[in-house]
């Protein structure tokens, strides 16, 4: 069942303010990597993740903070990951670019654009052998020009794997506009492999939820993969480094047009003002506590640099000779 309007509003508000706090922490140097902000795309995360069961598996990407928060990852532990602390969800080994949090059903974020889809396909195949969990692969428009993505479409369709391919089409692969990169269409690619696909408004979390719920049902009931392309937009740059570089690859009018469809405003209009105020206040409290937790969490001990490298440990030599 579709969640209540205030629940979606709360998720979108949490993601928006989390990203704004992160940008502050990038400025202060606490998040050394910078981040790929998802401001403007929050409705996709909120609607998509609400359609999943807690034990379903999602593979995220470099612009994935919203996915984590929407799936219920602890904001404090997640932020501690971004600041490289041992209290982070991955003990400081993932940072902003490659996080995972299995307790929230997020199994990783591959940095090789488009390649995570085949990992999600294999994961979905394995999960289906032992039950009715499904896998979700989330990628952007930049991924659809990768051959590896098409290999995953082929395998998933051929073997009827319960996986949902989600394309967050925000119009740009870093600086490259989608129309100058993509011949044909995103959904046309899926159709070529016999995968049902649709293009859906990604700024309205309720519309996102409905489309995603249909794809999830199909996967869970043995119908195989689907692709949903959500049209959306990022109001910030590709990465926070753009705040210094001021790259002029899109004009102000375009950004302003998309701001008229701000997911936060769209969902706010569905929630009474007093409820909104209460949600906003709670979000600030949660984020204050998260920032405190992240900055108070210890830095890793250099002696632990090899921890978690192997599951079956091997003896490794140091970088300097012992004799």
């Amino acid at each position: 069942m579709r969640p209540a309007a205030e629940a979606f509003y709360g998720t979108i508000r949490l993601i928006r303010r989390f990203e704004e706090r992160c940008i502050d922490l990038v400025r202060s140097g606490d998040i050394g990597s910078g981040i790929h902000p998802c401001i403007g795309q929050e409705a996709v995360a909120a609607g998509m993740c609400a359609a999943l069961r807690p034990d379903d598996a999602l593979l995220s990407n470099h612009r994935g903070h919203g996915h984590f928060l929407a799936r219920g990852s602890d904001p404090g532990r997640f932020l501690a990951e971004l600041t490289g602390r041992v209290g982070g969800v991955d003990k400081g080994r993932a940072g902003s670019f490659h996080p995972s949090d299995l307790s929230a059903g997020i199994w990783g974020a591959s940095g090789t654009v488009g390649h995570g889809a085949a990992i999600a396909t294999g994961l979905g195949w394995a999960l289906a052998r032992d039950g009715d969990r499904i896998a979700v692969s989330v990628f952007g428009d930049g991924a659809v020009t990768q051959g590896a993505l098409l290999e995953s479409f082929n395998l998933a369709s051929l073997w009827r794997v319960p996986v949902v391919f989600v394309c967050e089409n925000n119009g740009y692969a870093t600086t490259l506009p989608a129309p100058t990169a993509i011949a044909g269409s995103v959904v046309g690619r899926a159709a070529a492999f016999g995968i049902p696909a649709s293009t859906v408004d990604g700024q309205d979390p309720e519309v996102v939820y409905d489309a995603m719920a249909a794809a999830v049902d199909r996967a869970r009931s043995g119908g195989g993969p689907s692709l949903v392309e959500f049209t959306t937009y990022r109001y910030e740059g590709h990465h926070t480094f753009e705040r210094r570089m001021r790259l002029a690859y899109r004009d102000e009018a375009e950004v302003a047009r998309w701001r008229e469809r701000d997911p936060l405003a769209i969902q706010a209009a569905r929630v009474p003002p007093d409820v909104r105020e209460a949600v906003d206040a709670e979000v600030e409290e949660v984020l204050d506590a998260a920032v405190r937790f992240a900055l108070e969490s210890p830095h890793p001990d250099p002696a632990d640099a090899f921890d978690h490298l192997y599951a079956t440990p091997v003896r490794l030599r140091a970088g300097v000779s012992h004799a």
Binding site: A118, I119, T121, G122, L123, A126, A148, L155
Partner: peptide
């Protein structure tokens, strides 16, 4: 490339 990554996912899923 596809089936090598597929194996990674299947291994993460317990296989």
């Amino acid at each position: 490339q596809g089936f090598t990554n597929f194996a990674t996912g299947a291994a993460m899923g317990g296989k």
